[in-house]
């Protein structure tokens, strides 16, 4: 594996010292030792291609499935559509929030959904045995979609805040709660399900969290400034749950519990 342009090359010093030893000490045992030394040096000298982090990122980007971009694109298009519509109709903050919460819940799900594709296909065992393993693949995909989703949520909140004169932080809080909670729900499902996974639970969880995201509207006054503490508690709890489940997931993958079935 030789590529001088794109990566670091690990080199050893010189093979000669081993050869010297061989020449001076001809006895069988010492000769054997010297040969081993040479062998080691040769092994060290085997040129290994170690891609830089940027290059790794590009490699992984290349193999992100089309479905991923499609789902992200669909979310973006629908959010932009709803955003324009609500703005044109001069809707109030609740008009933004009802679809915003559902979209946030769905986006949260998609951020994690990448893992399910690997698990459902049963290719994880192979992927996990490679240099760039499945854990790295998934982490990168989560960061990527997480960033995109956060950007979308921020833009939504920004527009809504601008048009309704409600403070940005408040709207962001209302939208982050379903986002984080649906994420956490999904991870709970992943870490507790046993056996081969399928794609269907994801759809069910999506539907459930979509409905859940709409329920706050049933409680009058929940979106009033007096109830902000409820949202803060929900967000804190959600983030805690999410981080805790993420670590559990990571641990399970590293130990092989989530990857190897019979």
């Amino acid at each position: 594996m030789h590529d001088r342009k794109n990566g670091r090359i690990s080199k050893s010093e010189d093979v000669l010292s081993g050869l010297e030893a061989w020449r001076i000490l001809p006895e069988a045992e010492k000769r054997q030792k010297a040969m081993e030394g040479i062998d080691r040096k040769i092994r060290e000298k085997r040129i290994m291609y170690s891609p830089s982090p940027v290059r790794l990122f590009l490699i992984q980007l290349q193999y992100i499935p089309f479905a991923f971009w499609l789902s992200q694109g669909a979310v973006l298009v629908s959010v932009v559509f709803l955003l324009c519509r609500t703005t044109l109709q001069q809707g109030g903050v609740m008009d933004y929030l009802w679809w915003g919460s559902v979209a946030a819940a769905w986006m949260g799900l998609m951020a994690c959904g990448g893992l399910n594709r690997h698990l459902a296909r049963g290719m994880v065992e192979l992927e996990q045995s490679c240099y760039i393993n499945m854990l790295q693949l998934w982490t990168m995909r989560m960061i990527l979609s997480g960033c995109m989703d956060m950007a979308i949520l921020c833009v939504c909140s920004g527009v809504a805040a601008w048009n309704t004169r409600v403070r940005l932080v408040r709207i962001l809080l209302y939208l982050l709660v379903p986002f984080v909670l649906s994420n956490a729900c999904y991870l709970i499902f992943l870490t507790s399900a046993r056996g081969r996974r399928t794609q269907y639970p994801q759809i069910i969880i999506g539907a459930v969290s979509g409905v859940m995201a709409m329920t706050p509207r049933l409680f009058t006054g929940i979106y009033s400034p007096d109830c902000l503490w409820v949202w803060l508690i929900l967000l804190t709890g959600g983030v805690y749950l999410w981080v805790e489940r993420l670590r559990c997931c990571r641990r399970k993958i590293a130990r092989g519990e989530m990857l190897c079935w019979n």
Partner: peptide, 13 residues
């Protein structure tokens, strides 16, 4: 090619 990418093998190779 996908597996090669995961194994960090340069594209041409």
């Amino acid at each position: 090619l996908y597996m090669a990418a995961l194994k960090a093998i340069p594209k041409e190779l």
